[in-house]
Amino acid sequence: MLENFSFRTIVEYLPLFGQGLVTTVWLSLVSFAGALAVGIVLSAMNLQRGWLFRVPAKAYIDTVRATPLLAQLYFLYFGLPRLGFVLPELVVGILALSLNSGAYVAEIIRAGILSIPRGQVEAGVASGMTYVQRMRLVILPQAFKVTIPPLLGQAIVLVKDSALLSLISVAELTRAGQLLASDRFMPAEGFITIAAFYLLLYYCLKGLAALSGRWIGLQPARSST
């Protein structure tokens, strides 16, 4: 059985996989930066007391979380051009991942901010700090530490989700596997190889999460009250 498995073909296609890997890494990085930007704005809107910003933010987050990423991607890829917005597929892909992941990031950031005890806010208020000063000096530095591990978890999800961009012919890692599968009819070789590369990316991010966890552990503990 294994004699049919062609390592030679994999080696032959390595440059293609290499390009795919590079594309997956950089478009994931750009998309994650976009997701952070979207998430920060959404969580800020969602934490307002008035409904004017909160309701649209909640509606957006719910819509994104309730619908499949593939449907969102197809809407942007097939739907937007019909509405007059023609964008390159790479831009559509990054947009889809940023907008999708941003909704999850927003909830992670919101949870991080809400995890800071009420007494911290009151201490800031009582010393005459403005809302912005309280956020900048008291709340966000503490919330930041709490959110790093779940944000890295979300980054791992985003890297895996980026495989869907192969469906709109972005030349990323999964697309490279598809090409090997269809050119030489070697799906086993193609998809095992990309699996190995995704595993590699996963361990890199997990290592980063472990490092950040140790860094957080070295920081002064949160007070128990």
Partner: peptide, 8 residues
């Protein structure tokens, strides 16, 4: 009552 010092 609960001090509310900034832990960081």
């Amino acid at each position: 009552q609960s001090f509310n010092l900034y832990p960081h």
